[in-house]
């Protein structure tokens, strides 16, 4: 699984770096909340991107700081959802 974790990490880092020049230095463990880099609009974009690109759906309780503090946290959440035996939609 590790190789594809890398792919997911690279994808999400690229995604957040495209946000603008304040975001270009974001790495896997940058605290997106403490640094103020994750605002509500970027959060919304993250959710769209993850739902569309990976088919992962968020429940209302899963959109929270512990799943979105760092790219690493987001990757961990996506992988945990993908490995769950849930109905694979779409």
């Amino acid at each position: 699984m590790t190789a594809n974790r890398k792919q997911l990490e690279a994808d999400l880092i690229q995604f957040v770096r495209s946000r603008g020049s304040r975001h270009v230095a974001v790495i896997l463990r940058t605290d997106l909340l403490e640094s103020g880099l994750l605002d509500s609009l970027l959060l919304m974009d993250f959710i769209f991107h993850i739902e569309e690109a990976y088919g992962v759906r968020f429940d209302s309780d899963q959109v929270n700081p512990s799943n979105f503090r760092t790219i690493e946290d987001i990757v961990g959440f996506v992988l945990s959802q993908l490995s769950m035996p849930q109905g694979q939609s779409g």
Partner: peptide, 15 residues
């Protein structure tokens, strides 16, 4: 709409 660009299987494939 609704077709994931990257299939879940691709991500979970053991390397």
């Amino acid at each position: 709409r609704g077709t994931p660009r990257i299939q879940a299987d691709d991500i979970l494939t053991q390397s």
